[in-house]
Design a protein around this nucleic acid. Sequence first.
DNA 1: TAGGCCATCTGGTCCT
DNA 2: AGGACCAGATGGCCTA
Length: 330
Amino acid sequence: MMTKPFGKAGDVSELVSSLGWLDDDVSSVDGEDSSDMRGRCGLTTDGLEGSTELCSDDMEEDEEDDQEMIGPNGEELPKRRGPKRKKVPKVRHERVRVRRVKANARERSRMHGLNDALDNLRRVMPCYSKTQKLSKIETLRLARNYIWALSEVLDSGRSPESLGFMEMLCKGLSQPTSNLVAGCLQLGATPMMLNQMEDNPPYGSLEASHLLHVKGFKGPSYDHPSSGECSGGSPPYDGPLTPPLSISGQFSLKQEPSPIEGERTYTAPHAGHYLSSHHYPASAMGGLPGGQAGHALFRPSRYELPLEMAFDSFAPSHMVPSQMGAIYSE
DNA sequence: TAGGCCATCTGGTCCT
DNA sequence: AGGACCAGATGGCCTA
């Protein structure tokens, strides 16, 4: 990944300076810390370049140390009292810089690991596409809902094909994401699913979330992930990771309070709210809009379709807009 | 142009 | 001392 110039480092140091953090007195606290702080001045790209300009201010201050202080009106100010500030050797600055560069690299690596984990999480969500990634926050919300919904299936025998299941999945999600999830669950073996077949490598460590598809899950009778073959091994890859559910049940407008988000209220449905924003995943239509290379993040609003088209593709034949109340309502 | 999302840098804190 | 983790700041990219 390319590194970017850290353009505001100078601004920060200015701010810090204006706050007096770079005052001479700082040197009496800890030489390394103060030099570390001053070392931010002039940091450019990743701290890899610009090492020569690093801490140039610091050196200038060192020189000022030996000069007479001049007041705002040109008058001579008394020489600063107190212990003479130690000159921080360049070697130390270099050490600090190297430490910072290494820390940056570690931090990048750490964040990449975090993003990889998030990607793995995306792959086991009910709607996954390599080319249309859910945002981080939406991924986490959907994962939470997914766990919650699957737990409900296990505990209460609620059918994963019920509207309630999808409602649980969509609670708290943005409307575009809700629409995406709803679309995925209803479309079954859609182009998106085919896309996943191609996109997904064998990936078995999170099989619990595939249970609806992989194991032909029908309800509580399914082996709990904590037992049997699902407990420790990695079952062979068995098709798309997303459970290709088809919502065959009648939509109801019943709103249940969320046990995991009590503060959120889902009010009475707005007529035609479901898919009302016309947001529609292009991959569900069999392809992505061209161009826009380099930005894989899911931008649902880019894939707008007229509401009628969306319904034609999403909704079961028996479903009418008036029945599709507040899948998502906020 | 505003807003959302992201990657990166950074300093602070805690732990080993 | 150094690494992991965290949160704030910042700028880039993209879309509406």
